[in-house]
Amino acid sequence: MVDTDDRSTPRDPATGAGWVDPPPRMGFFTDTSVCIGCKACEVACKEWNGVPTSGLDLLGMSYDNTGALTANSWRHVAFIEQPRPAAASEQTDTTTQFLGMPQSGPPGRTGTAEGRNDFRWLMMSDVCKHCTRAGCLDVCPTGALFRTEFGTVVVQEDICNGCGYCVSACPYGVIDRRVDDGRVWKCTLCYDRIGAGMTPACAQACPTESIQYGPLDELRERAAARVATLHERGVPEARLYGHDPSDGVGGDGAFFLLLDEPEVYGLPPDPQVPTHDLPKMWKRAGVAALAMAAGAVVAFLGGKR
C-alpha cells in the first residue's frame, strides 16, 4: 500500500484493497459552473444519513453558514463573491487585484453608483474526495476506515475509536471528529444507496446536475468535454481539479470543475497523501533510533565515572 512514489501509474483502489472482480469505480464529478447554490445536496445528505445539525451560526461568509466540511456536514456549499476575472469580462477594472476571497472584512468593495465592476458569485459543493491514495485510510490504526468494492472510502462507525489520526492525515481537511460522539464521520458516498443500485442522495437531489454520479472513467470523459466546451465559450478559467490519477493522491474519486484557483474554494492546490513519504520517514526514524541506541551505548562505555 505504500508504493506511492510512482505518480504516473493509476491503479484500481478496490483491487488494491483485495476485492476480487470489483464493480467499476464509482465517484462524483461536481461541475461548479452549473451549481446554483441551492444547498439541496447539503440537506439531502443530512436527511438521508441522519446527520445532526452543525449549529445555528450566522457566519457572514456570503450565504455559507455551514463553514466547512465537518462531522456534521458531509456536503458543504461554498459561496465566493468576487470581481470577475479579466479574461471573462470586457470592462474589468485592472487596478483591482484579484485575491480570491477577502481575507477579512466585508466582501464588498467593487460596486458604486457610477457603475458596478463586473462581479461574480461562485458556488461549489464540496465533499470527501474518496482519494485513490487516501491518507485517512492509510493511517487508521483500527481498520475502521476501509475501501469499498466501489473504490470509495468509508468509516465503520462500530469500529472507530476516535483516535483522530485520520483527521490529521487527510490532505483536504475533510474527515472530522464529532465532538459529542467521539467518532469521526464523513461522506460514505452513500454506501448503502449505491450498493442497492441507487444514486447518492446529494446527487439525486441536485437540480442542475452539478453533482454527477457514475463510473469514474465515464465521468472523467464527460468532465474533459465540459471543460473543452467552456473554453470554447470564452470561459478560459474553467479547469478540472482532482481528476488527474498522477496527482499527489492518485486522483480523486470525487473531482471538480472549478472556475478559479482551488484555494479560493478552500481546497489545497497540490494535495499529497502523507504516506507518500512514509518509507523515507521510517528510514529516518530507524537512523534516529540507531543514534539513540548508540548514544546510550556511548554513554555507558564512553567513560569511567
Binding site: G67, A68, F98, G100, M101, S104, E263
Partner: peptide, 8 residues
C-alpha cells in the same frame, strides 16, 4: 488567497 481565511 483562501476561503475567508479559513483553514484548509
Amino acid at each position: 488567497s483562501s476561503y475567508y481565511g479559513r483553514p484548509i
